[in-house]
Design a protein around this nucleic acid. Structure first.
Lengths: 225, 225
DNA sequence: GCAAATTTAATAGTATTACTATCATGTTTG
DNA sequence: CAAACATGATAGTAATACTATTAAATTTGC
């Protein structure tokens, strides 16, 4: 297990909590078990009441940390994208060729993280599954605009923008870098989901890097002159 | 207004209704006003009770047509994809070159239908907005597999498969036709949504065909040798 | 043209959800 | 050691996603 340098804290956008959950034991339990339970039950079946029961606390106490379960989900995805941005920066350090950088960025997105990093209450593997399959619920509501104004998608946008910049470096005349990258990110999530549940919509290969290969090829062919 | 030949009925997969809503006045009202209300309120805020009030009927009566509001949504999306398949067949009639066929298929997907077709209780413009922004809720639940076994996605899969076949015609060695097309379909929906709510994730152009152009270019570059 | 069958409406009820409010107890801290 | 704060326990509200029951209206089959 690698340890994170413990002075690192992500700049998570907005304030989607009432009280910083990392500031107390109860808060940390909410994060850890909340992530696990959303992963197991799905977001719809997940409730603060059930979470309270599981951590030997109660509903009302959890509401002191998060105003609603939607804000909890937004908080988790923002944290995830802040983490991904950090990982991206690490993955690209000392890589000079923009092609290689773009390749690595796509690889980072396409890989499910394995939990060999000690992040305590944030279990990355589960969290990434949640963001994969549940987080579009945080923007597919009529309240997107409100959430967006509150900063819900800043970390996500920052990530997209960072990768789009690499695209521009490779081909400054390409007109749709943001669209390409947001399509790739959501496409990766969707293809993973399809692979598991609706395989006829995919072209699964033995080689389990096929999603990464598919999108890498797509991106490079698309942006080449 | 064009009239549909009135002997046409789509083969809608599965049986996501208890009683055929096209067989009665009440059923037709449920379809028409249900579509409108989901479009206006969003699926989460939409309830059978509200629908009942609006059409001067009541909750219990609606439950005789649809077991739940999720099945109602699945029914609507299946109908939509059956309709899209029909439209696709029309759009491709007498077009011989596979390149032109693929181009037209993408154009069909990228265009919001204008309601100049007399489909009575199915208002296409609203329905397409629903499928665009709400229908992933029909697969982003833990019950996907069950829904899938019940045939929920047959019409969608058929559509994907039809378009993938064109890709194969153009380049039979291309390994990921289904992935490419399912990525494009969901990508179009997402980019439309982003254009409206999170424009920084897109590259909106004055020209309002930019989504179509972006995906057309992406597809053709990707599948070319 | 009328009885039987079916469809709908009206009402009520259940379990659960997503919260809010209140109050008492325990813990931290200045 | 008191004041401030965090938690727990309990209760309550309005709404949701249904189900059950009964009665009225409409359709249909003969």
């Amino acid at each position: 297990m690698q340890k994170l340098p413990n002075n690192i804290r992500f700049q998570v956008s907005g304030s989607f909590y009432l009280k910083d959950p990392e500031s107390s034991e109860l808060g940390k339990k909410i994060l850890k078990h909340g992530i696990r339970m959303i992963d197991e039950l799905g977001f719809d079946e997940f409730t603060f009441r059930k979470l309270g029961m599981e951590i030997g606390s109660n509903e009302a106490s959890i509401y002191r940390y998060f105003e609603s379960k939607y804000k909890f989900l937004i908080f988790l995805s923002s944290w995830y994208w802040a983490w991904m941005e950090y990982s991206l920066i690490l993955a690209l350090t000392n890589v000079n060729s923009p092609e290689k950088r773009l390749e690595r960025a796509i690889a980072l997105l396409a890989h499910e993280p394995n939990d060999n990093l000690d992040l305590e209450h944030f279990e990355l593997e589960k969290l990434s599954r949640i963001v994969n399959s549940e987080s579009s619920k945080s923007y597919l509501t009529k309240e997107v605009d409100e959430a967006n104004n509150g900063g819900a998608f800043i970390n996500y946008k920052q990530f997209v923008s960072r990768v789009s910049d690499i695209v521009k470096e490779i081909n400054s005349r390409y007109k749709y870098p943001n669209m390409l990258i947001s399509t790739v990110i959501e496409g990766i999530h969707l293809q993973r989901f399809f692979a598991e549940h609706l395989p006829r919509l995919t072209n699964k290969q033995k080689d389990n890097l096929y999603i990464q290969k598919f999108f890498t090829e797509l991106v490079f062919k698309t942006i080449k002159g």
